[in-house]
Structure formats: C-alpha cells, structure tokens
Design a protein around this nucleic acid. Structure first.
Lengths: 196, 196
DNA sequence: TACGTTCGTACGTTATCACGTACACAGCTG
DNA sequence: CAGCTGTGTACGTGATAACGTACGAACGTA
C-alpha cells in the first residue's frame, strides 16, 4: 500500500526571496548559476520541478548547498524547556553516565543539544546507550568541566576544560573520563536522520 | 563571468546504500515512493538526474527528508579548538557583551556554537553585533548562569538558569540581562546561510 | 514625447526525464 | 530437469524540463 503523502516541495518562493535578498535579477542569477532566466522564473513560480542537477546549480548560484536550500520545513515557533521540568536524566545503562536532552523533540528540529555527566572512569556509548548517530549527522562537543578522551575511528583525542571538538557522528565513537573528578560534556548533534 | 563549480550531485550510491540498509528491493521502494523501479535503478546508477518532485518522493520512501538525503558533501574530519587557543573574545560594541565562537569556521559546517557573557544590564544585538541570522536558520540557547530575557517578535520570555529556548533566528531578537550578576549563555545556531 | 535599458514572463523547439513492458540472470521448489 | 519467484536492467513511448528567442511593462534620460 502506498504510504507517501508529499508536501509539494515549493522551493520557488524560497529561491525568489533569496535572490531578491541578494539583489540579483533573474539574468544575474542565470549567469551565476548557468541556468536560463526563463527556467529560473518558472521554478520560482512553481510551474516546474527542476532536476537535482539544475537545482544544485541554482543553489550554487545562491552560494549555498542544495540541502540548505531545501530546508524549508519546520514551523516558526518559540519553545522553552524549563530546567525545573526536566527530569534529572536517565541514569544510563552504562553506570556513571547521566545524560539529558535539552532541546524539545519537535518535528523539523535540526540540532539536538544534550548534556552528559561522566563519573570518574565512566564512558558514553555503553551498550544500550544512544550508540551512534545516523548517516550524515555531525556532532560538536564542548568540555564544561573535567577532562575527557574522545575515542573515534581516526584515533584518540584528549580534551581539557573548554576544548571543543567537531566530528562526523555517523561513525562509532565514545567519550571516556580518565580523571578523578566528574566530567560534564555538552554535545550538539546536528541533523541526524531517523528511522521508525 | 560564470563562477559556479558544481560537484556532481551523486545521490545514486547514497540511495542504493540506504535502500539496501532497509532491506528493500527496487520494487519495494517503488511502491513506497510512487516512483517506478526502472527510474530508481537509473537514479541509483547516476544515469539520470531526477526532478525535485521525484527526488522528494524517493526520500520519503526512505523515510527521510530530501534535505537529509542530499547531505553527502563535507569531509569526515575531526577538528579541535583548544580553550587555550581562543582569544578571550571580542569585547563587542555593545558594552558588557562578550562572545566567542566555539566551533571552527569550516566549510560545510551546519551548526555554530558560541558562548555569550552578559554584564548586568547588558544586551546582545547592539548595533554592530551580529544582528540576526540568515533566512532559515534556527537558534537554541541554554542559560548557563544568571537570568536573561529573550525579546523576540512573538513577545518577551524570561529565562532562568538551565532553561533552554529554541526559535527561528531569522527574525529580530536579542537577549538582555536584567539581573545583578553576570549571565552566561550558550547558543547553537544551526544552518545559517552565507553571503559574500 | 521618444529612446535605451532593464525587468519578468510567454512562446516554440529540443533534450531528457519517467513511465510501462519485457528481458536475462539468480535462487528455490516440486 | 522444468517451473516458479525474486532480483536488477534494456527498450520504446509520452510527458515535460530546459533552452533560446522575443514580447510588454516599468524605469531613467534626453
């Protein structure tokens, strides 16, 4: 049984808004992107659905990546998660590792912020923990207190207080706390995918 | 003069990998997505460039958004920004507001993490400060210490320590520190665009 | 008013996207 | 071995994406 119901992919208004924000005419953008001006006009008005190839060229002409151009979902709301409303976090299966998600689980969310507390000797990524993230996701971690070690495919990295590390989150990795005191880690995972 | 250099948008291998990871045949995916099986085959082998409409249907059949499917650029590197290597941050034009970018300014970066320190009575968004962010970007802020007030289009929100707020960053907004002590704010801006 | 310039869009042609059908190959089942 | 079921791919046709050219409207200048 067919399951798909697709929202109409109307990049048109988006392209027009960006083009006008850059103060470009259709012919200007045509020259920059290599896509004919009439084509651009049709795309902007939603009269045609461009191929990925030309859509990518249009995006490039607007100085951004196609994936950025297509991110037009999500609604414009302000959502607040109160400190008081958060449970102290699941005392994860890996003993000595507590974590809490700070961002609300909204649809269209692109970045997830979480705080991790590691007891001395503890590590993230224990069995049952959020093991790793989906393909394409990227993680940034900031050491708030203590010292931790990042173990990842490419090697072992020691991090001190205030250090900030960015890496692809779709390959196996975990943090360890080799020190004597508790370590607190702030993690930003951007744009993970999701499977049912 | 034309400026565009476009990398070839080969979603093909990606689609195939995802489809096989889901253990679906071409006809299975065809049924789920509403795209014919031969078409899927051609797309996977890069023999044709699908339109945005069918690309979106393919993505939906794989249970993800098109923008997620297209995020195959950027290289897999680990980059570390040492606390010692960071300057104490620009003492911004708005007196009493210091900020520092924690993530390295790499191409293909999707989320930027920054820390803001607000003296009593100070506010972000002073003239000359990073005024607001590009269309489509989204911001998540976490109050690390002190209390702040978020002024935004939709109203005024008071935030205490540990509170976390998420909102669209492409409309005018700023934070104030109405308290007596210093306030520290951690901000994640995801997927801002860029103009030359 | 008349002219040159620029804007966005309507027209007609060609390239190719996307479909349905049909095929060659593999793995089972009787 | 014949017969079935599944895979992924080659073929031919209709739909349409993408191009180049050309038009009417809106602005500035003489």
């Amino acid at each position: 049984m067919a399951t798909v119901e697709q929202h109409a992919i109307d990049v048109g208004p988006r392209v027009r808004a960006l083009r006008e924000a850059m103060d470009l005419s259709l012919r200007d953008l045509s020259q920059r992107s290599g896509v004919s001006a009439p084509m651009l006009s049709q795309v902007e008005r939603g009269e045609t659905s461009p191929t990925l190839a030309v859509a990518a060229r249009i995006a490039a002409g607007l100085e951004l990546r196609l994936s950025q151009l297509l991110r037009l979902d999500e609604g414009g709301t302000v959502s607040i998660v109160r400190a008081a409303d958060r449970r102290t976090g699941s005392a994860g299966p890996a003993a000595g590792h507590r974590s809490e998600i700070l961002t609300p689980p909204l649809p269209g969310q692109r970045a997830e912020l979480s705080r991790h507390t590691l007891a001395p000797g503890a590590a993230t990524g224990g069995p049952g923990d959020p093991p790793m993230h989906e393909a394409g996701s990227r993680e940034t971690a900031l050491v708030q207190s203590g010292a931790v070690v990042l173990e990842i495919d490419s090697g072992r990295h020691e991090l001190a207080v205030g250090d900030c590390v960015t890496f692809d989150a779709d390959l196996p990795h975990h943090f360890e706390n080799p020190g004597d005191g508790e370590a607190v880690l702030l993690a930003v995972v951007s744009a993970g995918l999701r499977r049912s």
